[in-house]
Amino acid sequence: MQIEKIRGHQTDQLFKAVLELKDLEECYEFFDDLCTISEIQSLAQRFEVAHLLRLKKTYETIKKETGASTATISRVRRCFDYGNDTYDKMLGRLYPDEKPFQAK
């Protein structure tokens, strides 16, 4: 697992702060202070790529809809195949009526 590569005091502090956010507005404010617009957009794009992969969209469709490169799409796909299953877990919480991702 790659989790151990990022684990540490600073990361714990950051993640604990995220868990303390009370609502969407507070989340926007926190991330606006913490990240550049580009960083936030990049994270949001990856999450949307994950959602579209979960919906079985093609790379070409995902590229058109999100503007993500094929390298980004491939990276997110690898997370589905070899990661911690958290994209699928979080998308399942946001969209409980959708089917979970299943690798081919």
Rank of each mutant, 00 (worst) to 15 (best):
I3A: 15
I3V: 13
I6K: 14
R7H: 13
D12P: 10
Q13W: 11
L14P: 06
F15K: 07
K16Y: 13
A17W: 05
A17L: 07
V18S: 09
K22W: 03
K22P: 10
K22F: 00
D23P: 12
E26T: 12
Y28C: 12
Y28T: 07
F30I: 04
F30K: 08
F31D: 12
I37K: 11
S38Y: 02
Q41Y: 04
S42H: 08
A44W: 00
A44K: 01
Q45P: 01
R46P: 08
E48M: 11
A50L: 02
A50T: 07
L55R: 14
L55Y: 04
K56E: 14
K56P: 06
K57V: 02
T58A: 10
Y59F: 02
E60H: 10
E60R: 14
E60K: 10
I62D: 03
E65C: 06
G67Y: 01
A68E: 07
S69Y: 03
S69T: 14
T70W: 03
T72Q: 08
I73H: 04
R75H: 04
C79N: 05
C79A: 04
C79W: 05
C79I: 02
F80D: 00
D81H: 09
D81G: 03
Y87K: 15
D88W: 07
M90T: 14
G92I: 06
L94C: 15
L94T: 12
Y95I: 06
P96L: 14
E98C: 11
K99W: 02
F101E: 01
A103L: 03
